[in-house]
Simulated scan of single mutants.
Amino acid sequence: MKYGKPVRIGVNGGSLDPVVFDRARQKYSRGKIFQEEQNSKAFVEAMVETSLASVLLAQKLGLSEDYMVLSAKTSRVGEMVFVYRLLALAQKSKVSLHLGLTEAGGGERGIIQSAMALGMLLEQGIGDTIRVSITPRLGEDRTGEVRVAQDILQSLGLRSFRPVVTSCPGCGRTSEDFFQHLAQRVSQAVDQRMTVWKKNTREWSI
């Protein structure tokens, strides 16, 4: 508040207040629900309750909603989607929502899970900022997360970062690998030229 900077208010599913979580679990334990489903419903409710309570506390301390970015970190796609849907509905005031699936994993699994979670919410108009959390391979840096985030936004038509290379997946009618090599070379050439194109193009959508 002193420096006029935005503050991210983060609620992490791995460190929920046990009192809030237990209260939610007791609520759902009255019905005949399988334990896993019961825990999931209670978890979502506890995440939403804790998130909204954190926003109210920040407001009482004098932080304007314009300077808040609310993050609710979960590691399951379904739970994340439900948490943010409820937060979007429950907020009387507009606080920016930061989307991100924590502990998404590495490789294709991490990419798929992140794309599913973020894509469903962004398509519904939920979310103001995003973060992709993927475990990098040994020796790799973390810039791959940024590329995945860009691809998600571009696939939904929300941003444009680079030309899209459209290529055939291949089928029984072709036995040569010419198209595979061509698609790979074109994609690599586009990536290599992006820096130059951005410098030489005044109007670049980002």
Rank of each mutant, 00 (worst) to 15 (best):
R109G: 00
Q154A: 08
L97C: 05
G78N: 13
S54T: 10
S71L: 01
V146K: 00
I9T: 07
S29I: 00
S51N: 03
D177C: 01
V186P: 06
K2S: 14
S51D: 04
I130W: 01
F21A: 12
D177K: 07
N39W: 01
D151A: 15
K199Q: 15
D191K: 01
R76S: 07
G14Y: 00
P169L: 05
E140I: 09
S71C: 11
L122E: 02
V19Q: 14
L89D: 05
S175W: 05
E49M: 13
I206T: 11
R109T: 13
S64M: 09
S175Y: 07
S133L: 05
V165Q: 05
L70G: 08
I126D: 09
F161M: 06
Q124S: 13
K27T: 13
L138D: 15
D191L: 01
L138C: 13
V55A: 03
N200S: 12
C171D: 13
D177M: 07
L56S: 15
V186E: 10
D141C: 03
F43D: 10
M1C: 04
M68C: 11
V11C: 03
S155D: 04
S155L: 13
V148F: 10
G107N: 05
L118K: 05
F34T: 13
A58N: 01
S155M: 13
S167L: 12
V83K: 01
R185F: 07
P169V: 04
R131Q: 10
D17M: 09
V190R: 01
V196T: 14
P169Q: 04
A104P: 10
T102G: 12
R173S: 06
T195E: 15
S187A: 15
L86A: 14
S64D: 15
L121D: 04
I111Q: 09
S175V: 12
V83C: 03
Q26S: 14
Q192Y: 04
S175M: 12
G10I: 15
G125A: 02
F178N: 11
F34A: 15
T135N: 11
E145Q: 08
I111N: 02
S15I: 10
M194L: 15
S155V: 06
D17V: 05
I152G: 06
G106H: 02
G125V: 00
G31N: 05
D17N: 12
S40H: 05
S155I: 09
F178I: 12
I33T: 00
Q59T: 03
Q154L: 08
R8F: 01
I134T: 14
I112D: 06
Q59P: 00
V164F: 06
K198M: 11
S15R: 07
S64V: 13
K198P: 02
D177V: 13
R193D: 13
G62L: 07
L57D: 12
M194C: 04
S133K: 08
S71Q: 04
F34G: 15
Y67Q: 14
G172H: 08
V83W: 00
Q184D: 11
S40Q: 12
G31K: 04
R202C: 02
R159Y: 02
D66Q: 11
